[in-house]
Simulated assay, not measured.
Amino acid sequence: MDEKLISFSNQLKELKGTKSVRAFAELCGVPQPSMQNYIHGMRAPSLENLIKISHANNVSIDWLAGTSNVSLENAKIVTESDYTSIPIYSAEASAGNGCFTDTDKVIGKHLVFTDDLQRLGLKKEKTCAIKASGDSMVPTLMNGDLLVIDTRKQEGVLDGVYAITLDDSLLVKRLRYDLASQGYHIISDNEDHDNFLLPKGELERLHVNGRVRQVVKNL
């Protein structure tokens, strides 16, 4: 079993104390089956659930993750300044038309650590989230993963995983520059899916919506 999951499980057990799993899950605002998995070290929580547990019990996320070597009594309380809210758009990464930041509605909010935004050099007003759909980017991305996207105009040679519009399809693919054709290889990380080259003469078919900078796994 992963040591990080064991550490998180132990911290939860300390927080739960003599409460039932059901009562503890209700206190935290987390579904009971998810809490059961967390307590037994079977799954890692989403960021939203981690923050819910943190807030409900007035402890820091560092302490919950076992990275803070302090007692429960001395655990720092998380405040709103520790994270930033970004919009989640309704578009999914394997379907839809156009640029999701212009055509799709906001369906929710995603909480990102403010330190992560600064570390990645992201601007709140130019950052959003969408969900991955399908299996073309497995194992890098799984169906249902939440993708944090930097929507600023991408400068220079592109190299990485991007949310793109190719013709009328919204996709998430790995882009790699091809010097010979001055175009881009459009790559699926799943070997069962085909890759192809988009040469310079066809680049008008491609619009880059933004670069994937962070992935929240669907657990």
Rank of each mutant, 00 (worst) to 15 (best):
S7F: 10
S9D: 09
S9Q: 09
Q11L: 12
L12C: 07
K13I: 13
L15G: 03
K16R: 15
C28S: 00
G29W: 04
V30C: 01
S34N: 12
G41L: 13
R43H: 07
A44K: 13
P45I: 03
E48F: 06
E48R: 13
N49K: 08
L50K: 03
S54D: 09
H55F: 09
H55D: 11
S60T: 08
S60N: 04
I61N: 04
W63S: 03
L64M: 01
S68V: 12
N69Y: 06
V70Y: 02
V70K: 04
E73I: 15
E73Q: 13
I77P: 03
V78N: 06
T79I: 12
S81W: 05
Y83T: 10
T84D: 04
S85F: 07
I86Q: 00
I86G: 00
I86P: 00
P87M: 02
P87Y: 02
I88V: 15
S94K: 13
F100M: 11
F100R: 04
T103P: 02
D104M: 11
V106L: 04
L111P: 03
T114A: 09
K123Q: 11
E125R: 13
K126N: 13
T127I: 01
C128S: 07
C128K: 01
G134R: 01
N143H: 10
G144R: 01
L147I: 14
T151E: 06
T151P: 03
K153M: 10
Q154L: 03
I164V: 14
L166C: 02
L166M: 05
D167P: 02
D167W: 05
D167F: 06
D168W: 05
V172E: 00
V172F: 00
L175P: 00
Y177V: 15
L179W: 07
Y184S: 05
H185I: 14
I186L: 12
I186Q: 06
I186D: 04
I187D: 01
D192L: 15
D194Y: 09
L198T: 12
L203T: 02
R205S: 10
V208P: 02
R213F: 05
Q214T: 14
V215M: 08
K217E: 09
N218Y: 10
